[in-house]
Nucleic acid binder design. Structure first.
Length: 499
RNA sequence: UCCUCGGUAGCUCAACGGUAGAGCAUGCGGCUGUUAACCGCAGGGUUGCAGGUUCGAAUCCUGCCCGGGGAGCCA
């Protein structure tokens, strides 16, 4: 028996259809049930009128609880008031499978509870938007590279060697040999670029970093293009086109998802070429400048004003509480929770900002940027920025040195706006065999593991470049959310292996 | 590893030394167009664990466990 998906209802106005899905929410009145059905493609209100359906259908509607599986037959009616713009006047309701005491009620929940129920949480509205956004971005990435003639070829997940040391790798036993889960497809990408010209890898990456922050997962997805005969400038041009393409695609095709997430579209609409490009040294100067100090002062002042306004509102609400009607009390309670949460955020920011200001002011040339430094830098601009030519000491061993200044490596990072920080890291690779051999030695890496990599320089070494885009970090920025753990179906992070 | 905040009903929170409460969820009743529907009634608790201080501890102290945020590291 065929059925109709909710996202296709606009093609069936006035027709009789069958919907299959789960009960998202239910309201009732005398002689009426309003069933909000969820089928993965959207939500649709199904109206069941006692006078217009058989007694079995009325009973099924009554018995259906949240997340019960249902089939509903009915007529599609245009109704601007509804989610999706349509509703279905039910002619029959069949309860396929009941659900008792579904744990995620239509109410706010804490993150620990939700993460423990991630397998069910995925059914909710916000994960719906985020997972669909993820799918959209994955498709946009493939389109971008496929249209330009790149081959998608994957690097191995199990590796015997570490790209940049073994401290942050997950170690495994590979039939008695030590092995690791990959932390980057980088070196393999270079081999494939020498074979096919332009390639990109798209796969999971593993880092055993003990980081508990909103920017880290132990398992995340990375897209790594690698191009023969590309220098640093061409690499930055590509990264810029790539980001613009993704943002434009999302703005065109994920409007509803962004709306569900409450994303302010204006910052995304400003993402156009060219992105400001700063050398590392220019970025350091900007960090240490009066302009940065002043900008942070202004931010702190704005936060203090918001804090005072919220405290005032809370006091007024409390004063009015005793005289308030019941529904008003409920509203005040809800608002109080909102206010308290925002006040906590503000307090944390007010604790952090002076430290960030100090870190920026005293930043010394040669250090790598901390998370706060990146955030502060991006606050100066209205679109992503590219920082390039870092001190060689803070970058990977395979980076090419700047011919103009040997202290510098031809690396580049793309920093997302609105304080989201690094979403791309990459650069031009070293081509000279002797230089790489020396680098491996100086970094204390096992030479044997890199013999095959050295072959790439022995047989037709050419300039080449590439970069890695963190999928979840990019999604976090696009969605405008606070934690990247919501951008992957089942996040893996410190202390979280299930579900 | 370090710093910081937290753990109270199934869920989200309040009570901050003196009889553990509210909303949501659940059950029953009411209402023919609801939008987190609403109104009424009901059940629901070793206040994370173990000790200590006190006439009295959810509240104060010590240790442990679990979680949030941050530093380091990084996409």
């Amino acid at each position: 028996m065929s059925w109709t998906y909710i996202e296709d209802l606009h093609r069936h106005e006035g027709e009789s259809v069958t919907l299959k899905g789960w009960l998202y929410n239910k309201r009732d009145s005398k002689g009426l049930f309003f069933l909000i059905l969820r089928d993965g493609t959207g939500l649709c209100q199904c109206v069941v009128n006692e006078e217009q359906v058989a007694p079995e259908a009325w009973a099924a509607a009554g018995a259906a609880t949240q997340e019960s599986a249902l089939e509903v037959d009915g007529v599609v009616v245009r109704d601007e008031r509804q989610v999706g713009g349509y509703e279905v006047q039910a002619t029959a309701v069949r309860l396929l499978s009941p659900a008792d005491d579904y744990p995620i009620t239509p109410k706010e929940h804490g993150i620990e509870f939700l993460m423990n129920h991630r397998h069910l949480w995925l059914r909710s509205r916000r994960p719906w938007a985020l997972m669909r956004l993820r799918n959209r971005v994955v498709m946009a990435i493939h389109h971008f590279f496929q249209e330009r003639g790149f081959l998608q070829l994957d690097a191995p997940i199990l590796t015997g060697n570490a790209v940049e040391g073994t401290t942050t790798l997950f170690a495994l036993d590979y039939f008695g040999e030590p092995a690791y889960l990959t932390q980057s497809g980088q070196l393999y990408g270079e081999a494939m670029a020498m074979a096919f010209g332009r390639i990109y890898t798209f796969g999971p990456t593993f880092r055993a970093e003990k980081s508990k922050t909103r920017r880290h997962l132990t398992e995340f997805w990375m897209i790594e293009p690698e191009m023969a005969f590309y220098d640093l400038d061409m690499n930055m041009d590509l990264a810029e086109d790539f980001i613009v393409h993704i943002v434009q695609d999302v703005l065109q095709h994920a409007r509803e998802e962004l709306a569900v997430l409450g994303r302010d579209l204006a910052p995304l609409e400003r993402v156009r070429k060219p992105f400001p490009r700063l050398t590392y040294s220019e970025a350091v100067d900007l960090l240490r400048s009066d302009a940065t100090r002043q900008m942070l002062d202004e931010r702190m002042e704005a936060l203090r004003q918001e804090q005072a306004a919220l405290e005032h509102e809370r006091a007024e609400n409390r004063a009015a509480y005793d005289r308030a009607k019941k529904w008003k009390k409920r509203q005040i309670d809800a608002r109080e929770i909102e206010i308290n949460q925002r006040l906590e955020e503000i307090e944390e920011m007010l604790r952090n900002l002076p430290q960030w200001q100090e870190s920026a002011r005293t930043f010394t040339w040669g250090d790598d940027f901390g998370g706060s430094d990146e955030t502060v830098l991006t606050w100066h601009f209205d679109r992503p920025i590219i920082v390039h030519r870092y001190p060689a000491a803070v970058k990977a061993f395979y980076m090419k040195r700047d011919p103009e200044d040997d202290r510098l490596a031809l690396g580049m990072d793309v920093l997302a706006p609105e304080g989201y920080g690094e979403i791309i890291g990459g650069g031009e690779r070293a081509t000279d065999l002797a230089f790489l051999e020396a680098q491996v030695r100086e970094h204390g890496l096992p030479r044997e593991a890199f013999e095959w990599y050295f072959d790439l320089r022995r047989y037709g070494s050419v300039p080449h470049s590439g970069f890695g885009l963190g999928l979840e970090r990019t999604l976090t920025w696009l969605a405008g959310i606070k934690h990247l753990r919501e951008t992957i179906p089942f996040p893996r992070m410190l202390g979280r292996l299930t579900p």
